[in-house]
Simulated assay, not measured.
Amino acid sequence: MKLMDCHTHTQYSVDSEADINKCIERAAELGLAAYAITDHCECNGWYKEEHYPENERYLRDSFDYAADFEGSVSAVTALKEKWAGKLNLICGVELGQILHDTNAAKIVNADKRVDFIIGSVHQVMGERDFYFIEYEKLTMDEIYDLLERYFKEVYAVSRTELFDVIGHITYCLRYMKQRHGIEADISRYDDIIAETFRSLAQNGKGMEINSSGLRQGFGDSFPNLKYVKLFRDMGGEILTFGSDSHTVEDIGADIADAMKTARAAGFTRGAYFKKRKPYFIDIE
């Protein structure tokens, strides 16, 4: 089985200290068929802190993502030359909160150095990142309201042209379950999730299977088999795989299991991107 890892983070992400050179060396050691570095770029924190109203700054975990983006893309572009012929190194970005600042998203999309864009929603408008939410202070009705807004925002993102694949579509469940044991039933949103998948398929966009939940206590991939099957039923063809690694050691972690999920859903190939175009590898 040829493994690929198309969602990873390095020292150029605010929440990672992974040395970019060691990450690339590890990917080469693993013999990955494709390896994408996709450091964080949150559109709602694109500018320096002083750009934003004081009463809104709490909504952002960090600022000046424009600098992080340039640092990562410049480094990966240079390293692509160094590793040419030895590793299929992809210059990517995880672009968060596209709808919160579409001008920032358009700047990233216009950068010809970028091979691949994951469109992620880490927080809904007017709320903090799901990582920071104090779920124990919310009622289940409030949690379901938050989840409804999340899936509506993901659907709205799916109708744009500002990304290549939607990242970890069930990310919204991660911290409420891992930290607080809250099991929310998202089947009530299956209709809008299905419409999101139909939109992706019709627009030539894809979805990722993010394997991080398998090693972090969640117990399943983001999304799980049910929703990978639904993506296929809605006409989805482009599927990428990502460990969401933030350390050297986690590169490629549980990707084989994510590929098994894809096969169980009826997929026979996975994709990676170069120059914003998908290339396919058989996973059977």
Rank of each mutant, 00 (worst) to 15 (best):
L3R: 08
L239S: 11
R60Y: 06
E17D: 07
A84S: 11
Q216G: 02
S72M: 04
Y58I: 05
A156E: 15
T102Q: 15
A156T: 10
E50W: 11
P278K: 04
D39L: 05
K277E: 14
D115R: 03
E284S: 14
Y58R: 13
S13M: 02
T77K: 13
R113D: 00
A201G: 02
S62F: 04
T8M: 10
I255D: 00
N210I: 13
G126P: 03
S212L: 08
I37G: 01
Y47E: 08
G266T: 11
Q178T: 15
Q216D: 03
A104T: 08
A104H: 09
R60M: 08
K205R: 15
V76M: 00
A34D: 00
A253P: 00
A262F: 03
N44Y: 15
M125S: 14
I107T: 14
E42M: 11
I255E: 01
D164K: 01
Y144I: 07
L32R: 03
E249G: 12
C43Y: 12
G85Y: 02
F130M: 13
Y65E: 03
A253G: 02
E94L: 02
T8P: 01
M234F: 07
R57C: 09
V93C: 09
D19V: 07
A253K: 14
E50L: 09
S62P: 00
A28N: 07
R179T: 05
T170H: 10
D68E: 12
L162G: 07
E153Q: 14
G126D: 14
R128E: 15
A184T: 07
G31D: 01
R232E: 11
I133E: 05
E134I: 10
H7A: 09
L89C: 12
G181V: 10
K205W: 05
R128V: 15
I20F: 02
D145M: 14
K152P: 02
F69S: 01
C91W: 01
M176Y: 02
M125H: 13
M176R: 05
V108C: 09
K274D: 10
T77H: 12
M4Q: 05
Y150C: 03
K229Q: 15
E195F: 06
Y12H: 09
T8I: 12
L99P: 05
K48V: 13
L147D: 08
K106C: 08
K137N: 15
N224M: 09
F280D: 09
F241I: 02
I186N: 09
R232T: 08
S62N: 06
A75K: 14
H168M: 08
D164P: 02
M125V: 11
A265Y: 11
N21S: 06
Y279A: 13
F132N: 13
I37P: 00
I90D: 00
K22E: 06
A34S: 00
G242C: 10
L30W: 02
D282S: 15
M1G: 06
E284I: 14
D111C: 04
S13H: 02
V108D: 06
Y279Q: 11
A18W: 00
R179S: 09
A75E: 09
K22W: 05
T8S: 11
A27G: 02
R128N: 11
T170A: 06
F231L: 05
M207L: 15
G206N: 11
Y131H: 14
G92Y: 01
E42P: 03
D254L: 08
